[in-house]
Design a protein around this nucleic acid. Structure first.
Lengths: 179, 179
DNA sequence: CAGCATCCTACGAGATACTG
DNA sequence: CAGTATCTCGTAGGATGCTG
C-alpha cells in the first residue's frame, strides 16, 4: 500500500525556512521577500520567481538577444520587460553586450544563466507530460552531437540509478541553523 | 518507441509562443495568462508560477500536510494559502484526504505533484551553488537506500552523457503549430 | 531600436475578525 | 483547526507617449 512519504527525517520542528515575524504589525503591508528564508529554493525564487522571468530566459535559450525580440515573442509590455531585464542583469543571469553589427544592446546568458537550464527543462518536461498538446510534443530537445532526444530530467543517485520521489530523503546540512 | 525527430532548425521566425493580440485595446487591463502560448513551460508556469506555490510544495515534500503547518512554516497569510491550496487541488497537484487520526483535512501530493520534484531540486541546486549559505549547504538530499547524496540535477543525452547547455538543440515537434 | 516616464488597473498579499 | 469574509495596500502588469 501507499506508504506514507516520510521524505524528511528533518522533522518539522526544525523550521526550514523561518517565517518573518518582526514589527510588521499594523504597518504598511509590504510583500514579503523570501530573503530571510534560509533555503536555496527561496533564494532562487527571489530571482527567477516572477511571472515573466522564466519565459524571458526561455527566449534567451532559444536565441533571443534583443529587447525588441523579447517584446515581440512574448507579448510583454516594455516597462515590465525593462524591469525584468534589469534585475536579470543585476543578478548576473544575463549580461549586456554591445553588438558588433549595429552597436545596439544584446542580452546574453551568463554562465550562471546557462546553468538554469535544468530548471527550464524540468518544467518543460513536466508540462509535456501533464499538460500535453493534443498533437504531441511541441519542442523536442536533442543532443547536438547525436541528434537524439535528451533524457527526461530525473533524479539520480550517486551511482547513477534513477530515483523516484520517495527514494529520496532530506538531511540537514551545515548551512541550516538549528537554533 | 522513440519517434523520429524532425530536424527543422526552428529558426526564431517560427514564433514559439505566440503572443496575445486580441481585442484588449482600451479595455480593462487583465493580466495575461500564458494559456494561449503553445509552450509546455508556459503551461507549467500557469500552475506553479505564483509566488508562494513552489514553497508550499516544498513544504509538502518535507512532510507538511495540514493547513496550519503550511501557515506556520511559511508565514503565509490564510487567504493566500487557501487560494493556493485550492488551485493546487484543482490542478491535481495536491489532493485532500481526511485524516484517519482526527478526521481533519490533509493535503497530500499526488503523482503529478511528486513528479515536480526535479523542478524543485533543480532550483534548489542552483541556489545552493549560486546563492550559497556561508556555512555550506542547508539541506542535502540523499538516496534513501545508500544514504549518499544524490547527483546534482543535470541534462543527459540518450546515452547518459552529461550535456552542457550548448550541447543541446531544440527542434520543432508535432505539437508546434507552424502556421 | 532601446528604452524611460506616465498613468491606470487588477491582482497578490497582509491583517484581522468571524464561522462550523 | 480549517478555513471564509473583509478591508486595505502595494506591486505587477498593461497601454500609451516621448526621447536619443
Amino acid at each position: 500500500m501507499m506508504q506514507l512519504i516520510r521524505v524528511a527525517r528533518l522533522h518539522h520542528a526544525t523550521v526550514l525556512c523561518k517565517p518573518l515575524r518582526e514589527e510588521t504589525v499594523g504597518r504598511p503591508v509590504k510583500y514579503k521577500t523570501f530573503d530571510h528564508m534560509n533555503c536555496s529554493l527561496a533564494q532562487t525564487l527571489n530571482i527567477i520567481g516572477e511571472r515573466w522571468t522564466l519565459l524571458i530566459l526561455r527566449d534567451s535559450f532559444f536565441g533571443s538577444k534583443r529587447f525588441a525580440q523579447f517584446e515581440r515573442n512574448l507579448g510583454i509590455s516594455k516597462n515590465i520587460l525593462t524591469a525584468r531585464l534589469n534585475t536579470l542583469v543585476e543578478e548576473g543571469i544575463l549580461t549586456r553586450r554591445t553588438s558588433k553589427e549595429d552597436g545596439r544592446t544584446d542580452y546574453v546568458l551568463t554562465e550562471q544563466g546557462l546553468e538554469l537550464q535544468p530548471v527550464l527543462l524540468s518544467m518543460t518536461h513536466w508540462g509535456d507530460k501533464h499538460r500535453p498538446h493534443p498533437r504531441g510534443e511541441r519542442v523536442t530537445f536533442v543532443d547536438r552531437e547525436t541528434g537524439r532526444p535528451i533524457q527526461k530530467m530525473g533524479v539520480r543517485g550517486e551511482d547513477g540509478r534513477l530515483l523516484a520521489p520517495r527514494d529520496i530523503r532530506a538531511t540537514a546540512g551545515p548551512g541550516l541553523e538549528t537554533d
